[in-house]
Design a protein around this nucleic acid. Structure first.
Lengths: 359, 359
DNA sequence: TTGAAAGCGGTACCAT
DNA sequence: ATGGTACCGCTTTCAA
């Protein structure tokens, strides 16, 4: 293998001193010109000359030297639980976009590893590698870890409001749950199932709460039937089977996320419960996979990209020492994306098997 | 919001000097003890004392200072095209795992942005932030960018062998294509479709080549019918419709990846072509979503995690100035994961409509 | 309007 | 077996 670098020890990148000498100015002046220091008045001609040489030499300041001097790395840490999750992917895209736009880079890691492996925590959080951290909450058991980290590094948490020292960013999960349930209600469903994620997590509980509220508003407070899942498709598969067995009167189901919805639809078809004829399914959260279930999955779209962007903005303000609110709900709201998995209850299994009292 | 950091300017982390003084030794000695410098013989008692104080003070060396001095950041860049892709996710997991195990961190970025946005390229590659780069090739048009980058920074490319200055890591794509086609052949299919990604990319062409080879080995060289896709589910959807229309004799289809397969299965059901009764589908590459198509998708599993690990190992050796081979195929091989989307041709549409000469 | 020089926190060489 | 010290490349006061 040809090795462009090691053979001739990679042509060292030009340093500030190189530029300064070439431009015929002192190092300090070069630095101030390049950084646009407003407190310094340079002769236009000098400024031009410095800038031109910097450009010509392709000068890029060395990050570690800057960081050492300024105590600022311009790197933000991002710790998430599951990269394969579509939620995380969307969020990550938004975060990266916003970070880059502001001159920050993203250092990625696994939230669980961060929480539970001290060694990895040191490597990642120690050594002043990052200026701040965006952390995905999840398991309730992370609470302590989050607080410890938040005490030591500017941290923004998403998915969990108020439980930590650190400011949080949120989408309106409750509204999302409400929209999903309301959709089913408006289609004419009366007995509705909710397949959840893990109880006790904010995401699950807020989505469920929204669904409950929609039911209550429609005078159906006691007709929401909750089954726990685990956020995954297998979990949704299992939960739907359980629900269908225990609650034959249910004609519509809200699932806490797309994976769960995918599992639920697969389970329904598996037991010859046709979707949406016999059972309607609406998932909270959206993903490209929703377009490729059969039938295509109706969802509530969450502003996850915006969540990522907002997390970065908030964190940067926090790093800069500004005052930040304790928790920030992104302005953009969830909205319904109807596809084909939810429809009016046509073949109500329920009515045939278990007559239900009206209203 | 309470601000643990800005109020009392975050208790500065202890530096080496702090540890050295507390342990009653010189800075230099402390450094050498902590770094296990083998060329130095310290009194056991002294070593113990230094290590103990470092531990007690929770000392972590400051990354930027080390990097400045050693010209080494212990950070590896990873540039990928599409984070939402399951391929990338697996690879990323493998890479992260291996990197962390070797004391490296991963800095993530978007390959297209890297290739086409000079500004972002400077931010990311300039300033000596990373020691090396793992780059996902993709669009053929990246060629130049890859070479430019490879000339300036130790780079490992995956997905494209031989086309660049930089060493590459690969999985045996050709074998994967062969396994998929062979599976269909062994099930009894004779007229087989191949729904591709983008022609001219190594991934697509190698997988197709493998499928061709399997056909040829079975004496079916002219019975492989290729339709182009674009790696996506919508692309697969469209391609399957086209294939079914133009080639009614086809009873089995290999798709270049899971997304394409998902689209293909959806399209089949959509046109009342039952899977696997009337049409079998085998996708190359695996993902959790394959468990939740209806029917569940038969796939060829690729060793992507290992690919990520191998990329990191190779890159580190490259960075360390060792000689590395031009391209490295990971040892672990693709294997078939049969599920339910491929079966013997039972209701051969073909035979009814276009009688085919036997074998 | 510009230059000189003191660090930022480590590492590694040269003394002792 | 240990200490002293010259850098790494940059920012930022202080002087001129």
């Amino acid at each position: 293998m040809k090795r462009p670098h090691s053979t001739s020890p990679r042509a060292r990148a030009p340093k500030l001193a190189t530029v300064a000498k070439a431009a015929g100015v002192s190092i300090g002046l070069a630095s101030r010109v390049i950084n646009d220091d407003p407190t310094v008045s340079v002769r236009p001609e000098t400024r031009r000359r410095v800038l031109a040489t910097a450009e010509r030499l392709q000068y890029v300041p060395q990050a570690s030297a800057q960081a050492l001097r300024q105590r600022r790395t311009k790197v933000i840490g991002l710790a998430v639980h599951d990269l394969a999750s579509t939620l995380v992917v969307k969020l990550l895209e938004g975060a990266r976009e916003e970070a880059v736009a502001r001159g920050y880079l993203l250092l990625l890691t696994d939230a669980d590893e961060l929480a539970f492996t001290p060694e990895s925590r040191r490597l990642y959080l120690g050594g002043a590698r990052i200026d701040g951290l965006i952390l995905q909450d999840g398991h309730a058991s992370m609470g302590d870890a989050i607080d410890e980290i938040g005490a030591v590094l500017p941290t923004v948490v998403f998915n969990t409001p108020g439980r930590t020292l650190s400011p949080g960013v949120l989408v309106d999960e409750s509204l999302a749950g409400r929209l999903a349930a309301k959709h089913l209600i408006e289609l004419g469903h009366r007995e509705i199932g909710f397949i959840g994620g893990v109880q006790g997590t904010h995401t699950n509980d807020a989505r469920l709460d929204g669904a409950r509220r929609a039911m209550a508003e429609a005078g159906l407070a006691s007709s929401l039937h909750v089954v726990d899942g685990d956020w995954t498709a297998p979990g949704g598969f299992h939960a739907l089977n359980q629900l269908v067995g225990e609650r034959p009167e249910v004609t519509g189901v809200v699932t806490v996320n797309v994976s769960t919805g995918t599992g639920a639809i697969a389970a329904a078809l598996d037991s010859s419960v046709s979707v949406p004829q016999m059972l309607s399914v609406v998932a909270i959260q959206d993903a490209w996979t929703a377009d490729f279930t059969v039938p295509r999955m109706s969802t509530v779209v969450l502003p996850l990209r915006e969540l990522g962007q907002e997390a970065v903005r908030l964190l940067i303000r926090y790093i800069d020492g500004e005052d930040v609110e304790e928790s920030h709900v992104v302005a953009q709201q969830p909205y319904l994306h109807p596809r084909e998995s939810a429809a009016p209850p046509r073949l109500a299994r329920a009515r045939r098997e278990h007559p239900v009292s009206p209203g």
